[in-house]
């Protein structure tokens, strides 16, 4: 057996989980899909005193169609999201991001809430939610908070969730008509974490860009919204030149590091290339939907 011993607790309701968290935080860890936490425990890099398993709380696993947004329970499996026709039609960027996450057997267990709370710098969902203007609902025994994606990701594997809080739901606005999207990334091998990835979404009204949002993953401590790149497109429209300027701007506003997989310079270069690819793909899809 590889992990250090722990006390294993299986709550069956959100309230029960919150009480346990209050009692055992900060030495307790919440177990979602376990596709990142269990490897860390197997390496004994994580040695929680208590492991609170969220897999038996039915109220945390759902995909709900609300008027102008989709609500997704934190314990919804990545595979369920991938197979959801609602996600595919109403928030297709999230579907495309999901297809890039590891491999199918990992997505069978991995959850959206787990990925977001773990906040790996290279993870796909945080960048997708920043682009989609998603919001996270967190609960504690004291109450409920709703946090915008732009305020949620704080640093390397660091989020706005307090030790006594539980992420329960992710709210994603449905895309308006005339919207195109793209999630593109480069990794060493299929299924590996990305060296760099770009999420893009834009809305066209005729030939005018009414909205464009871009975010990058793998090139900073947390997902980075590419404001300067977006501005190039909003100011100058969608021309070959403005897309190139946006790609250049994107490369300058990310904050990549050198590691054994790639240098910081290479990651900047990838950011530019991927921004261009994402914008072109999103444009094409927006035109099809217009």
């Amino acid at each position: 057996m590889k992990p250090a011993p722990f006390n294993y607790i299986v709550p069956t309701s959100i309230d029960e989980a919150l009480a346990l968290l209050e009692e055992h935080a900060p030495d307790a860890r919440l177990l979602a899909g376990g596709q990142s936490l269990v490897p860390m425990m197997n390496f004994r890099l994580s040695r929680p005193s208590h492991l609170i398993d969220l897999n038996c709380i039915p109220d945390l696993a759902f995909i709900q169609d609300n008027k102008d947004h989709i609500s997704i329970g934190a314990m919804t499996r990545e595979r369920t999201i991938e197979e959801s026709s609602l996600v595919r039609s109403s928030i297709p960027l999230l579907y495309e991001a999901t297809r890039h996450i590891a491999h199918l057997p990992i997505r069978s267990r991995g959850t959206i809430g787990g990925s977001i709370s773990n906040a790996d710098p290279a993870a796909e969902y945080p960048a997708a939610l920043l682009t989609l203007d998603g919001e996270m609902v967190v609960r504690s025994k004291q109450g409920k908070r709703q946090i915008k994606a732009s305020d949620f990701f704080k640093g390397i594997m660091e989020t706005a969730i307090e030790p006594n809080e539980l992420l329960v739901e992710i709210i994603v606005p449905k895309v308006p008509p005339g919207t195109g999207f793209a999630f593109v990334e480069i990794s060493r091998r299929h299924g590996d974490y990305a060296l760099a990835g770009i999420a893009a979404q834009m809305t066209l009204s005729g030939k005018t860009v009414t909205n464009v949002r871009l975010a990058a993953c793998g090139v900073g401590p947390c997902p980075i919204r590419l404001n300067d790149a977006e501005k190039q497109i909003i100011d100058d429209g969608l021309t070959e030149k403005s897309i190139q300027s946006a790609a250049k701007a994107a490369a300058l506003e990310v904050d990549p590091e050198t590691d054994l997989h790639a240098t910081a310079d290479y990651r900047r270069r990838l950011t530019a290339v991927l921004t261009q690819q994402a914008l072109l793909k999103a444009k094409e899809r927006a035109q099809e939907n217009n």
Binding site: Y8, G34, Q35, V38, P39, N42, D53, N55, R79, L104, P105, I106, S108, R109
Partner: peptide, 19 residues
């Protein structure tokens, strides 16, 4: 270590037996 759990392939090294 991949096995099928309730019809879906999973990594059996990342699931605890109690789960």
């Amino acid at each position: 270590c991949t096995v099928i759990c309730d019809g879906m392939a999973v990594r059996s090294c990342l699931m605890f037996a109690v789960q």
